[in-house]
Amino acid sequence: MIATLVIAAFMILAMAGAIYAALVPHTLHCIIGLGLTLFGVAGIYLYLGSPFVAAMQILIYIGGISVAMVFALMLSVSLAKKMKHSEIKVILSSIAAILFLAVMARLIMTTEFPLREEPAGAAAWGVEQIGHGFLTTYSPLFIGLAICLSVAIIAAVLVARREADKS
């Protein structure tokens, strides 16, 4: 019972944060909305039995990505100003998104998913299993991810550096 209430609270937090981020006219508030959503999503992961992924979500997403976004915001001062907020565009895109939502929701509700007899227990998927999976079956993913991250860092450094010769 309590578990249900808690997960419901996390879900509402995630949805409310997302909707707030989508509609609010201030960039910083938008990032805060994203932060709330990310936190709610971490709670959902916890309920779905993977504390490790939840921890990563908080560490990398909230601790890394959101903070980097706020930094970028601070570095470019004009961003902190209120942005040009066109009501019409927001309304039009909301209508489009709600249409998409309605169609997909109907599809999801009418589809019968091949449910497992019993949801996977927490014992089946500890950190050990994840590590084992990464190093055996999914080794290309592990290698690829490592390459991707190093490429991203090199690229980001090279791009953002100031030009050596302005001539």
Partner: peptide
């Protein structure tokens, strides 16, 4: 789905890059 749709709104209303 709600998150995805909210993301769509944020993208389509094109307010600023962040």
């Amino acid at each position: 789905l709600v998150l995805f749709s909210a993301g769509l709104v944020a993208i389509m209303s094109r307010r600023n890059l962040v």
